[in-house]
Design a protein around this nucleic acid. Structure first.
Lengths: 112, 112
DNA sequence: CGATGTTAGGTAGACAGACTACATATAGCG
DNA sequence: CGCTATATGTAGTCTGTCTACCTAACATCG
């Protein structure tokens, strides 16, 4: 998968991943792999900064915990995050509709 | 529409627009507007450089002509461009499948 | 004739978001 | 002890798109 393709859609992915319950960063990456059928394998250098961006924006909140001696920062959606996710899903539908209108192909009707 | 969302998909759009026949740059922009239902309104500063990139890559070829005193550079798909378009369409399907696997939502089955 | 708008093409530079590469630390296994 | 998996993080780069601008011919209105 071309790497730039993701641009502008990463936030939606992260928020959607947290929609099923709180997760820590590493687990988010694994969830993305699983749910995308292996197509998405995001590097930590992409995900961690993005999570902090989302936290600054108030869309997620985090708490530290320690599990089996390892520190984890567990993220969960905030109310604003849930609304943002809803907006992102709508934006995704608009986006794909627009692109598919073009890619969809076939000869196009002249404007009536 | 968030502007970055387009990243990595612009080439596909341009190639698809030319798939129905040759067009000059300005007409491509209008065709994109029409076919996307008005959602895509790409500035010339985005489209013209992208077309030159595609020409350098050998995916389109261009010829100058003059219509009603105005110079036009008319673009058409090359054979390589047609193959590239096919690849882009496949990549688009993979991309949306991956994203929708994540966004698609609902609780997710644990890996069996 | 001058102003404005439409058609048409173009460039330079900024910007932002994702990536590469690197650094850190603990636990468990051989 | 070294290696792998788990887990988090930063610095700097890269690149494609956008913003803002410029040029030019023609048409129309006043």
């Amino acid at each position: 998968m071309k790497s730039d393709a993701l641009r502008g859609h990463l936030d939606a992915l992260l928020l959607a991943t947290l929609d099923d319950g709180e997760l820590h960063g590493y687990a988010i990456i694994e969830a993305l792999q699983r749910r995308s059928g292996g197509a998405l394998d995001l590097p930590t250098g992409t995900v961690y900064p993005a999570l902090r961006r989302l936290e600054r924006a108030g869309h997620v909140a985090s708490e530290w915990s320690t599990v089996a001696g390892r520190k984890r920062r567990t993220y969960r959606l905030t109310g604003a995050g849930r609304r943002a996710l809803s907006d992102e899903r709508a934006a995704w539908r608009e986006f794909t509709t627009a692109i598919e209108g073009v890619l969809g192909g076939g000869p196009w009707p002249e404007q009536a």
